[in-house]
């Protein structure tokens, strides 16, 4: 049985084809200003990659902030539910899932069956999610992908006071003018966002093991800051940004089986 999970995120739409427990293909397309079109494109891409047609699919489940925009989906699941399913299958020992996407951060507490016990969300403020790092990268005039490794080179911490992405932008610019090393500023940026994510996680109570998913999990600088803040190790799947899509695909498979 072949199914598709599609995650319509604020920044990217991710699609994934699952055949039983095997991932056949994955795709990621920029959401741009037309999530609907991006979702179609992401679906076309995975189908092409797996040499399949839409008719071959038993079910399609959508998740993500734009899940209602996906015209062709047969069902939806919340991001929290999708993450819980995906992580329970990838790392059965995990009880706390941290998901940091472009516009939202989430902390989810799950039991050994992958059932959601509790969750907390940071949303609607760019200072609490991935957009923060992205905005700061722009202010620093460096590529987002370079932020991680640069931050690990930092020798000393510089304090950052602004709690708003807009004000932090100006603060970063004045830190550059004050001749602070870029790596120290980047580290400050990661420490700041990690601190906000960590306090959100503490609201649900941290229980080990802890997994980190979402696009921001690719940023090794942020991961380092978050580990330090929480003082524990984090399990990160190979493709952390596909966690939600994978969970949606599991949900699709359950639906197709008549669950």
């Amino acid at each position: 049985m072949t199914v598709v999970g599609i995650d319509c995120g604020a920044k990217n739409v991710k699609a994934l084809i699952l055949e039983e427990d095997k991932i056949l293909a994955k795709s990621s397309v920029l959401s741009g200003f037309d999530q609907k079109a991006a979702a179609q494109e992401a679906l076309d891409l995975v189908l092409k990659d797996a040499s399949l047609k839409k008719e071959d699919l038993a079910h399609i489940t959508a998740t993500g902030t734009g899940k209602e925009e996906v015209g062709f989906s047969l069902g939806t699941i919340t991001e929290v539910g999708a993450n819980a399913k995906a992580i329970n299958s990838l790392f059965p020992s995990v009880r706390t899932v941290i998901d940091v996407g472009a516009e939202e951060g989430r902390a989810i507490k799950i039991n050994d069956k992958g059932k959601v016990i509790d969750f907390a969300i940071n949303e609607k403020c760019a200072a609490g999610a991935g957009t923060f790092t992205e905005t700061m990268a722009r202010a620093l005039e460096i590529k987002l992908e370079e932020m991680g490794s640069l931050s690990l080179k930092s020798q000393k911490a510089v304090p950052m006071n602004a709690q708003c992405a807009v004000f932090a932008e100006s603060e970063v610019v004045s830190l550059i003018h004050a001749k602070h090393a870029k790596e120290d500023i980047v580290r400050a940026v990661h420490d700041a966002i990690a601190d906000r994510i960590a306090s959100m996680v503490r609201k649900i109570g941290i229980e080990k093991d802890v997994a980190l998913v979402g696009g921001v999990a690719r940023n090794i600088g942020f991961v380092d800051s978050l580990k330090r803040d929480l003082n524990l190790d984090l399990l990160i799947p190979d493709d952390p940004e596909f966690s939600c899509a994978l969970g949606a695909a599991f949900a699709a498979a359950e639906k197709a089986k008549g669950g």
């Binding site: 709690q163 601190d195 306090s199 959100m200 609201k203």
Partner: peptide, 15 residues
């Protein structure tokens, strides 16, 4: 003052 949502978070668990 600019971060009490986070400072007070431990006193305000979700459940």
């Amino acid at each position: 003052r600019k971060k009490i949502k986070y400072s007070c978070a431990p006193c305000k668990p979700t459940s």
